[in-house]
Amino acid sequence: MAEWIRACATDDIEDEDVIRFDHAGQTFALYRKDDQFYATAGLCTHEKVHLADGLVMDYVIECPKHNGRFDYRTGAAKGAPVCINLKTYPVKIDGGDLYIEIG
């Protein structure tokens, strides 16, 4: 069943950056760009590396280990060594807090 989970305060994420969020045994990556927020699965689809250690450039998150790249708005994999897209999650802001919808 889908549910909205408070992930963090919006101020916890700097512009064009990413942080890690763990909840109920799952891990997520949360992004901020020009005051828009995005959420994806936290682990790279190639070798289960935490994406939050990677570098954000514009709308691309790059895996810290093997440089697999994803568009974090859509989860689209952008070429070798990643071919499987990243799952994305809906987000909403309420009173300075970021919520993601999981389940």
């Binding site: 590396v49 935490h50 250690d53 990677g54 570098l55 790059e62 810290p64 280990k65 440089n67």
Partner: peptide, 11 residues
């Protein structure tokens, strides 16, 4: 620890 230097090395 882990991939903590990855981001700066990439830059």
């Amino acid at each position: 620890l882990g991939n903590s230097v990855a981001r700066d090395i990439r830059v």
